[in-house]
């Protein structure tokens, strides 16, 4: 029951995101039900000290925050020294984030997004919507529920799970899969967005596309897709209104 409560809380782990402690307050938020089982009842000093430690600086991928919080809480409940806990906390903060970023932001998310675009073009908006939400959240929800469980089970030995074959395989596949699916999606998106256009207009859009790929990330450091788009569109509209 307390694991379920901790898992549900993990969905809001970034609500208190701040520059000073990043996701630390969120880790404490998840820990509260788990730390209840510390010896000495709800108002004991040990439990408060543990919660205080939980709220210190921490950063990780949000979907792995439950795993980290549960592992840290388990270490507290087991009575590990605060030095050992802080050492573990410091060591796990970066690598766990790295795994989450590569697996989710650079794997699952672009793959789901690209597949959804393909479905939208070949099938229908509603199917695209459902494909995206189901595919993405099957993995997402699994990670949230499994994370708290395995973190609580293994405590600070939890990092061992990442040496399992499944994780290694998924991490290795993430990049190539994202590349291939995005590669498929982009021409299909182009074709669907320009359906029925005159060839000259298509050529114009493609030219803007090529220029954009060359310019984004190059001209000045903050030239991202958003700024490129804003700049180009703003210019075109201004010139269009002024001249035509």
């Amino acid at each position: 029951m307390k694991l379920l409560r901790a898992t549900l809380r993990s969905f809001a782990v970034q609500s208190a995101w701040n520059f000073e402690r990043m996701v630390g307050v969120g880790i404490a938020f998840i820990s509260i039900p788990l730390l209840q089982s510390m010896p000495g009842g709800p108002d004991e000093l040990g439990r408060k000290a543990a919660l205080g430690r939980a709220a210190a600086f921490f950063n990780t991928h949000p979907y792995f925050a439950g795993l980290a919080a549960a592992a840290l809480a388990k270490a507290e409940v087991e009575g590990q020294t605060s030095e050992a806990i802080e050492r573990f906390r410091g060591a796990v903060v970066g690598p766990l984030g790295s795994i989450g970023d590569r697996l989710i932001w650079f794997g699952l998310l672009p793959v789901s997004s690209a597949i959804a675009i393909v479905v939208a073009v070949l099938r229908s908006p509603v199917e695209a919507l459902l494909t995206f939400l189901i595919l993405y959240n099957a993995v997402h929800l699994f990670l949230r529920f499994w994370g708290v469980r395995v973190g609580w089970e293994m405590g600070i030995r939890v990092t061992e799970v990442f040496s399992r074959g499944v994780f290694r395989t998924m991490l290795r596949l993430a990049g190539p899969l994202a590349g291939v699916t995005m590669g498929i999606a982009i021409p299909l998106a182009a074709e669907s967005l320009m359906a029925g256009w005159r060839p000259a207009d298509m050529a114009g859009a493609s030219l803007v596309g090529v220029v954009g790929v060359i310019l984004i990330g190059r001209v000045f450091q903050q030239m991202d897709g958003l700024r490129f788009g804003l700049l180009m569109l703003g210019l075109t509209l201004t010139v269009g209104i002024a001249v035509l």
Partner: peptide
């Protein structure tokens, strides 16, 4: 970087 190895760095 006190996080040493993390997403910003490796990716």
């Amino acid at each position: 970087d006190d996080r040493l190895i993390h997403g910003q760095v490796v990716v």
